[in-house]
Amino acid sequence: MTTTTTAARPASSAPAPADLRRSALPLRRRLTDGFAKGLMVLALLVALVPLGLVIYKVIEAGAGVMSLDFLVDDIPNSARRAGGGMGPAVAGTLIITGAAAAMSIPLGVLGAIYLNEYGKQNALARLIRTMADVMTGVPSVVMGLFVYVSYVLLVKEQSGFAAALALGCLMLPIIIRSTEEMLRLVPDELRQASAALGARRWKTTVSVVLPAAISGIVSGIMLAIARAAGETAPVVLVAGTAFVSNWSLSGDNTTLAAQIFKNAGEFFPAAQGRAWGAALTLMAIVLVFTVAARLISSRFAIKER
């Protein structure tokens, strides 16, 4: 009695389309593929040119005035005066942007969770998406005017809180839409596996869905924070003017973006130097917080094995 030696071969031995080498593809497909890659690389290089020029110019013009004193000294009350610093603007940027983030990030993330995990395509979810899309395109000066009319005139005081409220309204739709898109990219298999283990929906969302999408969520949040930190019109309209540091949300305040706008329009070299220094400081602050947010999010992200 003989045994059959032609056992079933492993499925992995069968050639698969994904295993085909590039050299085995037709010449026309290889040329098309190379041409498309070349166009993408060229587009990337073209996009990097203006970005590189902006970074180079800001560093070149702002490095000359950068020092520890520049970061902590008060703003001169006269544009023609040399010296001084951006201490009040640094403090105002951190306080106002931080308060705006504290208001908008929880609301934005929770709103996105409702839209993607609970609301789906019901009437309320569609209304929220539409309003978020509309708010995304609202100019910042319009949001500043809205806060000025609805809050500043009501309390009869310009303040850092009013500026934080305006910036928070600008950040909210960006966080909602970007977070929802990241949650959509999480495979449904992860949700189904968690549900099969007996986890409730909220537990699945907190322990499975959010960690899987945390990197993309953090990227959207940092884009919103960067936009808020660079906004000028709402701050000029509702925050007032400050020449000394104000570490509270009450009373007049200022930000680096507002000081860039005010000093760049002056004809005096001292004021223009302070504008370039404020621009470099703002870029550095955004970079530091972006790197820190990346490091923190990587701690909670689901690691691929």
Rank of each mutant, 00 (worst) to 15 (best):
A112I: 08
S159N: 03
F70Y: 14
Q272I: 13
A275Q: 01
A195D: 08
G87R: 06
G119S: 05
S215V: 14
R9W: 05
F70I: 14
L282I: 02
A89V: 08
V206G: 12
P15F: 03
W276E: 01
K303H: 07
E117C: 12
G198K: 09
V155F: 06
P17S: 12
I260G: 03
R191A: 10
A24H: 13
L165C: 04
G198S: 08
A14V: 15
Y114C: 04
M283G: 06
P173Q: 07
L185G: 13
T93E: 00
A125V: 09
F146N: 03
N116G: 13
P50E: 03
L44P: 02
V286Q: 03
L237F: 06
A293S: 12
P234Y: 02
L107R: 12
L223F: 12
A226R: 07
A229V: 08
F161A: 02
T6H: 14
A36T: 11
A43R: 01
R227F: 07
L68Y: 09
L127Y: 10
A258G: 05
I225L: 06
M135A: 15
L45P: 04
A16E: 09
A7L: 09
K303D: 04
V286N: 06
F289D: 00
A24W: 13
C169Y: 06
A47Y: 01
V206W: 11
A47D: 06
A24C: 10
Y118F: 15
S159K: 00
M86L: 13
A195P: 04
E180Y: 05
I296A: 11
A8K: 12
L170I: 14
M222K: 05
M222T: 14
S248G: 13
K203F: 11
V46L: 04
L145R: 01
G98F: 07
V65A: 09
A36I: 14
P76K: 11
T254M: 04
I113S: 06
P15Q: 08
A100Y: 01
L165P: 01
S13Q: 14
L165S: 00
A89Q: 04
P10C: 06
A284R: 00
F268R: 06
I285T: 06
G198E: 08
M103V: 13
T204W: 10
V134E: 10
N263T: 09
L165D: 00
V142A: 15
M103N: 10
V152I: 04
E180H: 07
L237C: 05
T97M: 02
L295I: 12
A123S: 14
I174K: 03
L127H: 08
E266I: 02
P187R: 12
S298N: 10
A61V: 05
K57F: 12
A162K: 00
L25A: 13
L115W: 00
S178I: 10
E157L: 08
G85V: 08
R126K: 15
A162V: 00
L45M: 14
R177C: 05
V90K: 01
A271S: 09
A284H: 01
M40K: 12
G168E: 01
V286R: 05
S245H: 02
L107S: 11
R30H: 11
A301R: 05
V208S: 05
N253V: 06
T130F: 14
I96N: 03
A279W: 01
D19M: 11
I128T: 10
S250C: 04
A43K: 03
A271H: 02
A163Y: 02
V209W: 01
A16P: 00
M40Q: 13
L256M: 10
G144P: 01
S104C: 08
L20G: 11
G83Y: 13
F268G: 03
